[in-house]
Write a protein that binds this DNA or RNA. Sequence first.
DNA 1: AGATTTATTGGTAGCGCTACCGTTCCCTTG
DNA 2: CAAGGGAACGGTAGCGCTACCAATAAATCT
Lengths: 348, 348
Amino acid sequence: MPPVTAGVKARSRRGGGRPTIADVASKAGVGAITVSRALREPERVSPRLRRQIMAVVDELGYVPDRNARALASARADVIGVLVPSLTNNVFADVVRGIYEGLDQNHLQVQIGNTHYSQEAEEELLQTFLSQRPSALIVSGIDQSPAATALLERADCPVVQIMETGPDPVDMMIGFSHYEGGRAATRHLIEAGYRRVAFIGARMDPRSERRLAGYRAAMEEAGLFDERLVTTTVRPSSVTTGSELFREALAKAPALDAAFCNNDDMALGALFECHRQGRAVPSEIGIAGFNDLEMMQIAYPSLTSLRTYRYEMGRRAIAMALEAIAGRRPAEPVVDLGFELIVRESTRR
Amino acid sequence: MPPVTAGVKARSRRGGGRPTIADVASKAGVGAITVSRALREPERVSPRLRRQIMAVVDELGYVPDRNARALASARADVIGVLVPSLTNNVFADVVRGIYEGLDQNHLQVQIGNTHYSQEAEEELLQTFLSQRPSALIVSGIDQSPAATALLERADCPVVQIMETGPDPVDMMIGFSHYEGGRAATRHLIEAGYRRVAFIGARMDPRSERRLAGYRAAMEEAGLFDERLVTTTVRPSSVTTGSELFREALAKAPALDAAFCNNDDMALGALFECHRQGRAVPSEIGIAGFNDLEMMQIAYPSLTSLRTYRYEMGRRAIAMALEAIAGRRPAEPVVDLGFELIVRESTRR
DNA sequence: AGATTTATTGGTAGCGCTACCGTTCCCTTG
DNA sequence: CAAGGGAACGGTAGCGCTACCAATAAATCT
């Protein structure tokens, strides 16, 4: 079926025959700079010339060379985004918000995956910085000192997302994972559960803070017990959720609820309950974190702490765009908060 | 809490004080070209000079300017990737494969989201092409004629992913969605189900081909009935799965199985069965498409057609890298196939 | 009317790097 | 020992665009 002609397209050298700004300029009978302006700041060129130039642009199919533009203006039309994972639904939502917040803009996004590694983050930062991005968006507030230094010296706006905390490098948008963990755990206690387990995978700094919030709530109620905490460094997933829930039961057979560090884990725990014939919520209460869409469809529907991930991406970009435009955003540090969504899985 | 100093970082003009290749060259007492070579083709510089140059590079913290490099060499170290969605788990997996296939390489990825729109695809192609990417990866085989023309004229390798079909622009890696839909449907029929419904959201070209495969299998068995097909243009999701399954039941109350165009939909259908007290698999059989991880953890576990999405991303990049290196890949068109994973949800 | 601003356009000079072609020097080879 | 070849390095000349200024014409002010 595949024709034999399929193969590798050649990479020709310089030029490639594409029209340049000089071609447009001479054909339109104007200076190159005027063409440049007509494309970037149309209002600074008279309507007559503008039309004339645009006609030639269309005729020749001229598309400005972004590399030349970036070199000449010392600024690439690129926004660098560093996230620790692409698999994780949470970051997928944030990234979607970023893309959609950009929309009709001429800027491009470049995503770097740090794999939860500070070294990888530093390297990617170097790479991104080497193209003089228009802005940088980084995840979390736990950059290495070297990375922080790079960000501080970077001559572009920087937005830290996912969390809020003291000492923003520049701008910041997120919420408190500690308070989130605390609120979810309190809810379980108020719902009447006593032996509330914590189940957490991929204990990154944010998950650690959720755990700290859980611990605080348990201690406040005089219910904390080391054996109720089960964590792993493995990445979170539905499978890991099932497995860790089994582990938790083995360690603390009398547990009557589980606060999972995210929704995948919660779903895994729910399926494990089904499998073992444990009734949710009467025997076991389950709460997740993030409130992914599936939580309300699951049977029974799952309680979760809703976070505004998409919104976070959108507003991070909005803040970056403001800063690129030279305007100081009204609020350089934004706490988006969260909302506990109580559903069947914790209503007994 | 946020210190008042937080705000917008200034964007200074040209230079920014970063060391250039000339700085390194003079400090190392060599020509600029030699520095350039030492960084890009170390084997072409004598070991002594190389060490000397690298020492200065480290000392000065020199990082080559990617924009200048791209302009001078008429080639940006960027691979453009066009996908129709970032939310969809399927593309998330492919994208992950792409990122990991790249790994230690100096290339960067730039993702463009076409939102299943051919116009958006054309525009993004223009944008990508304007920076002379090292390679392009595009999703599907249903580009508009204009987009196809752009791809054919692009002087870089092009890989079409997700599907196989005739007339690759250059290289291609995927599988047959038609055969996948046919195989899944056949399995349901062989398992003893007779009134097998098709439930499909976001009917993009690939979903249409899955539907065509379903139809073929049903017709072969003399079971096809228009009323068994329920589709929507809305994006697929667990919620949409629940809703569409209800719709399907309203149209064809006697249906005894559902082939869903993807796994989110299948999970939604499963939850809806739980909710309505319909037993799976005895009353209703359910099969999904893609075999996301949650399928095997769901209760009952869900039958699905496994596709090799991560692998597809990895190999697409591998093919692109081969082509960039000027080597012709052994097989320019690759069919990755699929595998039907039979689980509890269709075992009655 | 003369002075001063404002709008519109263009010329010049790079941005920081690499392709291309030399040049130098050392090593073979007949 | 001359001729030839290869390895190692460097100079020159851009890549295609935009920042910075200058120049001109038109508009506004005193």
